[in-house]
Structure formats: C-alpha cells, structure tokens
Design a protein around this nucleic acid. Sequence first.
DNA 1: GGCAAAATTAAACAATCGTTTAATTTAAAC
DNA 2: GTTTAAATTAAACGATTGTTTAATTTTGCC
Lengths: 212, 212
Amino acid sequence: MPQILNNPMELSKKQLEIIAIAKTLFAQNGFDATSVRDIAQRAKINVAMINYYFDSKENLLEIIIKHGIEAYRLDARKYNTETDALLRLEKMVEHYVESKFSDLHLYQILTNEANARKRDSYAVLFKELRRHNIERLREVIEYGVEKGTFRFYDPLLLHTTMIGTFLNFKMNKSVIEEFIDIPKEMTFERYLKVELTKHLKYILKAILTYEH
Amino acid sequence: MPQILNNPMELSKKQLEIIAIAKTLFAQNGFDATSVRDIAQRAKINVAMINYYFDSKENLLEIIIKHGIEAYRLDARKYNTETDALLRLEKMVEHYVESKFSDLHLYQILTNEANARKRDSYAVLFKELRRHNIERLREVIEYGVEKGTFRFYDPLLLHTTMIGTFLNFKMNKSVIEEFIDIPKEMTFERYLKVELTKHLKYILKAILTYEH
DNA sequence: GGCAAAATTAAACAATCGTTTAATTTAAAC
DNA sequence: GTTTAAATTAAACGATTGTTTAATTTTGCC
C-alpha cells in the first residue's frame, strides 16, 4: 500500500532526501542516463522504495520540478522599491541571479528536459514561468522608458539574452576556470554569481541606454 | 569483416545518410533516449549495420561530432576585409550566426553532450573550438579599441552572451511563436536567423560603445 | 561463370532498465 | 501485548538496451 501523494508539497524527510539526490544525478547525467538503482544506491535505500514513494521515475521528475519551480518566479516586490530606473534594473538583476542560484541543479534539469519533452505537464509550467518573468522584465523596461532613462527594447529578446548568458556561464565552468584565475578564498560558484551579476547589469544598462 | 574507419572524413553515402538521421534523433531526443534500433528503422537498415559501419553507438556520436565541428570555427578572413570597426563587428556576427545555422542539430548535440560527458575526446575538441572563437572575438574587440570606436570588454563574457543568446533563442521556439507572429511567407528558422543576427549586432554594439 | 570480399540479414547474446510481487520487519494504536 | 498499517526487503518480472554471431546475399574482379 504505497503512500499517496495527494499534495506534492507534503513530503517526508526521506522523500526530500531522495529528491535531493535524484536532482543532483539528473542534472549531472541527464534523466535518461540516471537509473533508479543509481538513485537508490546513493540514497542507501532499496530500489523498490522509489516506486513506493513516487510511483514512477517519470513522476519523480515531475514532483522534483513542481516542487522547486516557484523559486524561479520573479517577484516584483523585491525590486520595485527602487524609484530610480537604473537602480531598479540592477536590483532586478540581483534578484534574478539570486533566484536562479537558489537551485542550480533544478534549473539545469528544466532546460534539458523541458526541451526534450515538450509534451509533458512540466513543460507547460516552465513556459508559464518564462512568460511571467518576461512580463516582469517588460515592466522594468517600460518604467525606465517613462522616466526617460531607457529606450524601449523587446523584453523577449532581453530575457533570452539574460537566460542564455546565465546558462552558458554556468555550463562553461571548465573554460572559465582556464581563462580566469579565481581568488583562492572564493568558491567557483560564488565567483560565478558575482561576475554574472556584474556582467548582466552592464549589458542590460548598455542595451537599454544605447543611442543607435 | 567490418569496414575500418581510418579516416573519419571518408564516409560512404550510406554512412552519411545514417549520420544525418542519427544527428536529428540525437538532437531531438538526446543521445541516451535514442536507441540504435530507432536509427536503423528511420534509415531503413538492419540494426547490425550501425555496429558494422561505426563499431559502436558511442563511436557514431564521436564521428558525427568530429565530422561536423569544424563548421563552427570562426574564420577571420570572412570579416577582416572590413576596416570600419563597427562594420567588422557586424560582419563577424553574420558569419557567426551563419556558421551556427549551417548545422543546428549538431550544435545542440554538442552543448547537450559535451557537458554531460566531460571526459570524452569530443569535449576536448569543443573546448578548443570555444577557445579559438573567443580569441577571434578578442581580436575584433581590440581592433575597435585601437580605432577608438570601442571600449574594451572581456571577450569571454561577450562570447558567453553570444552563445547563450543563440542557444536560448533556438530552444525557445514555442515561446517565441507565442509572442510574435511570424510572416506567413517566412519559415521559423529563417525568422530566427534574421532576428537573432539583428539582436546580436545591436547588443554587441551597445556593450562595446557603452559609456558608464 | 567462378571466386573472394563486402554488405546485409535474422537471431540470439548478456546486461540493464523501470516496475511489481510477495514476504518480512518496523511502527503506531488501542 | 495484540493488532493493523506502513515501511522495507530480496527476488523476479518482461521489456529494451547495445552488441555479436553465423548464415546469406550482393558486389566487383579476373
């Protein structure tokens, strides 16, 4: 008699532990290249427990995504306090990077799987999330235009550049390590976060204030 | 007695046909989610022929990558004819987008697999390619700086933004189709190429001429 | 036409996959 | 302490995986 998962947010400690391990493996090796036995071994549980807890491997992925996706939703209240358009933009970038870094593994899974599995329910969730964030970006741009600080620029294109830069930055760890020597006292992730924030602020300001 | 593949560039018609089909499937579904039987069925050949021609599925992937990766190498002669720094930058972007679009499927495979399989030989090739292209970008930037047209900006970061924007633009087909209505007489790919080129030119010019 | 090499086939291989079963242990409730 | 449900286990399930085998067909050459 398996435990029924009516509410995906009500997860036991053991389930959260399995989720954390599965998330890491899915992000590192991909969904298909990760077997339920890999997960079970790392979590020190019996293989059958995964089906007992999550019904199926596919459903485990769905629960992982549904459980974490809200962390990536831009919250306007986090930056709308700034009245200066440039400062508001900067604050939005900080909030944006912060939210992505809150769960890097999940975001990698989302980008990998949501594109390979366009049919599934979480692809819809991902799309809705993207639409939400593009709208938030549009608001910040239009605010700056009203204030006379910005020229208007397509938020869809800007969002594409932001997401793309973020993902590529994160994926190219090995290349970056080769090109730049990171201060000893800094972790790579910390460095990534600081430099990415700086870079994104710079390019967004440049694009939105560019006189062509 | 299988045919030995001493020179990966000497491929028969049948082999090229298999490669084309495998490339599409690997890009669409991922390497692991594509079975050799899927490939054989689509190519209308016996499953054993894949091992006969390519030794193994893994080796097929390697041959696909090695066979096509050179198309992505930036060739300075394609844009160095321009003496104006801005025009040279624009020409480089055109050449850059053109090269990526010459084989979209392969580029998707590269980004998906080169990150999941850091150990393999083609990951090294991919890294070397990236290094080459970053250096070409650096030259264009420094040329503009010498001419007094540009301010210097880190080519690694710029390259990250270019690649990332490109990949995300390409992956988000469904979102873009929702936001923008594409002229009936235009294919989505064509639209993607035109808009991406325009966008990349704009943001690069903005970043490199930004007065902060 | 005969012959050797290459190409192609169906079938089987062992390994691994996600999942289910049925038995057993643990935990909670009374 | 007994009872009932939940948790956990080892084992097996059928399906699919990449690959190999051994037999057959096709091809190119003299």
